[in-house]
Write a protein that binds this DNA or RNA. Structure first.
Length: 748
DNA sequence: TTGACAGG
């Protein structure tokens, strides 16, 4: 970590929504300006800053400081004061006036501004009016600094303090005194917890109305982190009461008041009162409306279409089965449709044919997926450029961490996507936010084709978008069920289907691709895993140990990814005198290690190099979930070279290493969208929320040739019985059905 | 207890 101080010479880029800023810092003693990057809540050119951060090397923009924290500082010597005043920090005062002011008042300048502003007019060229105005500005900044210090006493970070001050200004003190919980409402980044702590310090009662209401809203917001779009009243009241340490009855009577103030929304589903955080209610509602509006009929001549499909089949040397043909026909005829299918059911072939048909009509087609990797795979399998939905919609300004406040999409109802067809793959990963954003950017007349496997892991964000759409029955859904892969009669596929149906898996003695080795102690499980990956499986599936993937449900714990990686590294890639190592954030990376990129990086350059050392292909972009092997580590150039699939070599600066993780073992979540010859699955125990049917299904279907579960059979059965996404409260399905019914009524 | 997305 470095610390440097200097003037903000110029602001190269600034996103006002979230503060993401690129700026140049200068100092009289430096030869060159230094570029700093980060989320600066408030900056202006001419400010004097103390910046702490890491020195990194950006491939395009060179050396820069990645800001970790910063503060504004008042300059002290007269040179610095003059520079500060003259920098434009105070309106009406330029370099010339600043010089004159400082020549007169020297080190006393700042005191004059604060205490005797009228004396500024003694300087030639400064009127009384300008003097007062300048002093006011100056003092505003001082007040801000005081406010910062005040807030920091409550344990509030600098960044939050700036946000709070920007929101309320001097009224901040009043807000803090009367209702600190307002902070949680008005300021993203201040949650109930921080507000509650401030309130406690300010002497608020445990059962104050403000506290209870803020608590209810907070719990509703928090429930979205569990994937809910709403909570039944009973459940909401119970969790809130628990959080606040109060009696449920006391909480319950506040719910109605919040509904009346429209702070939360209440709707009945069946005989159950459901409470929504407003934004989510409107999102579901709008999604339903937009989906229905999008679902136009496009009449076609079936004979001609059939002919076209035939000729594509001939050209591509493929043969579509009945369901695939149905999918193609529906795609052409409907504004909205869903294609569902597990791995190996021919989704790719179907998408390809659909793309070809539309292409021959000269239509504009856009392909996208919710993750970078899925998009990349879509590009590879279709031969058309696919991108993340976020990029498609030109996302802007998502801040780090959980703060989604600044995030928005440039493509929306005002500037919709210009396309005839939009095809989205891996729809199961799309949450209600993303769906809403996508739909807003589509106009009726554009076809929306959604492809996915509803049995995979649910989306990160709230909602059961794909399942709700399918269940609502408003559009055509084609289910591809026939398994084309050669392993059609394999136990992997059979068991995957059993898992889906909720039946116990069969471990047949004579099975050739689906095994369970029962062990009850973590250490035994680890030993078996190592034995499998080092000795037994490679010859069995005819692959190298690096092709075999260990998948674990969790990161932490005795059987977590972190621990497993440490051990597997020891056995698969032990330390050797000639292997260079580099520690980063407590993890040791070594040459020949199997690693994975954990963040989309569109700038990362890669090249393919032939046996003579010549580059024969190059490009950009490494995606979240891509795995590779460390080829070289250079302590001299401070770089790590990683070889990804197809010999793509990418060079990481040491400071980019936060984008890499060891990948002998990865979480099942991370494996979604990838396939491996063999999968080893250590399963023993863990939280019920996580150990569910989807997770097991996702893990099992990653394997092409062989699945080996090591651990508890009982846990396997438990997971199959544990359908927890049923517990995701969402109502997109109901909203669609309601609107569809009322549309029909209007027409009749 | 796990997770994605981007900007000069």
């Amino acid at each position: 970590m470095e610390e440097l101080e200097g003037y903000v010479e110029n602001i190269v880029f600034r996103n006002e929504e979230n503060g993401y800023t690129v700026l140049h810092l200068s100092h009289p003693e430096w030869d060159d300006e230094i570029c700093c990057v980060g989320c600066f809540s408030y900056v202006a050119e001419g400010q004097y800053l103390v910046v702490r951060g890491e020195r990194v090397f950006h491939k395009e923009y060179g050396e820069q400081i990645k800001m970790v924290s910063y503060e504004e500082k008042q300059p002290e010597d007269s040179m610095a004061i003059e520079k500060y005043l003259g920098s434009g920090a105070i309106k009406g005062i330029g370099p010339a006036l600043a010089a004159r002011i400082v020549r007169k008042f020297k080190e006393d300048t700042f005191r004059i501004f604060e205490e005797e502003p009228e004396r500024l007019a003694e300087v030639k060229g400064i009127s009384i009016k300008l003097a007062i105005q300048a002093a006011n500005q100056f003092n505003e900044k001082r007040e801000m600094r005081q406010a910062m210090i005040f807030l920091q006493d409550y344990g509030i970070s600098m960044n939050l303090a700036v946000k709070i001050y920007r929101q309320y200004g001097q009224e901040m003190y009043e807000v803090l005194r009367t209702n600190p919980y307002k902070l949680a409402e008005d300021i993203s980044g201040v949650g109930f917890k921080i507000a509650d702590e401030i309130a406690r310090q300010a002497g608020f009662y445990q059962d104050s109305d403000f506290r209870i209401q803020a608590g209810i809203i907070y719990c509703l917001q928090q429930s979205t982190a569990q994937g809910h779009c709403y909570l039944p009243q009973r459940e909401l009241v119970d969790v809130t009461a628990q959080l606040l340490g109060l009696d449920p009855a006391l909480v319950d009577c506040h719910v109605d008041e919040l509904c009346m103030n429209k702070q939360i929304i209440c709707r009945e589903i069946g005989d159950q009162r459901c409470l929504y955080y407003g934004r989510l209610y409107y999102m579901e509602m709008n999604c339903a409306r937009m989906l229905l509006d999008l679902n136009l009929d496009f009449p076609v001549k079936e004979k001609e279409l059939e002919k076209k499909v035939k000729s594509i089949e001939r050209e591509e040397k493929i043969e579509l089965d009945e369901m695939q043909k149905t999918a193609v026909f529906q795609a052409v005829q409907n504004g909205v449709m869903v294609i569902m299918g597990g791995p190996g059911t021919g989704k790719t072939t179907t998408i390809n044919t659909i793309v070809r048909i539309f292409e021959e009509e000269g239509m504009d087609i856009l392909l996208a997926a919710p993750t970078g990797r899925a998009a990349k795979r879509m590009s590879e399998t279709t031969g058309y450029e696919a991108q993340t939905i976020h990029r498609l919609l030109e996302m802007n300004g998502a801040a780090d961490g959980d703060d989604r406040s600044g995030m928005h999409f440039e493509r929306n109802e005002l500037q919709p996507l210009e396309a005839d067809v939009v095809i989205i793959d891996e729809m199961s990963m799309v949450d209600i936010y993303l769906m809403h954003a996508l739909l807003k950017a589509l106009v009726p007349g554009t076809r929306l084709i959604m492809v996915g496997d509803a049995n995979q892991l649910p989306s990160v964000g709230p909602g059961n978008v794909l399942k709700d759409i399918i269940q609502s029955g408003f559009c055509d859904v084609v289910r591809l069920e026939k398994v084309f892969r050669q392993a059609a009669e394999s136990d992997i596929i059979l068991n995957a289907h059993r898992i889906n149906r909720g039946e116990p898996v069969e471990f047949r003695k004579e099975s050739r691709d689906f095994f369970c080795l029962e062990r009850s102690q973590p250490q035994d499980i680890i030993n078996v895993v190592i034995q499998l990956i080092v000795q037994k499986l490679p010859p069995y599936v005819n692959a190298s140990p690096y092709d075999i993937q260990v998948l674990a449900p969790m990161r932490k714990g005795e059987l977590g990814v972190l621990k497993l990686n440490e051990l597997l590294q020891m056995y698969l890639n032990p330390s050797m005198p000639d292997k260079i190592e580099k520690e980063f954030h407590g993890v040791l990376f070594r040459e020949k290690d199997k690693v994975m990129q954990i963040k989309n990086n569109y700038q990362m350059k890669w090249q393919k190099i032939n046996a003579f050392g010549d580059t024969y292909e190059e490009g950009e972009g490494v995606f979240n979930g891509d795995s590779g092997v460390i080829r070289t580590i250079s302590t001299l150039t401070e770089t790590v070279t990683v070889e990804f699939e197809e010999g793509k070599m990418a060079e990481y600066d040491f400071s980019d290493m936060e984008e890499l993780e060891l990948a002998y073992a990865i979480t099942i979540h991370k494996s979604q969208g990838s396939e491996y010859p063999a999968v080893i699955l250590p399963l023993l125990s863990g939280p019920k929320m996580l150990f569910n049917r989807n997770l097991l299904y996702t893990a099992v279907t990653r394997a092409k040739k062989c699945v080996t579960i090591v651990g508890s059979r009982q846990m396997v059965d438990q997971m199959i019985r544990n359908i927890n996404e049923k517990k995701r409260y969402s109502s997109l399905c109901q909203r669609i059905q309601e609107l569809e019914a009322s549309d029909a009524e209007m027409l009749s």
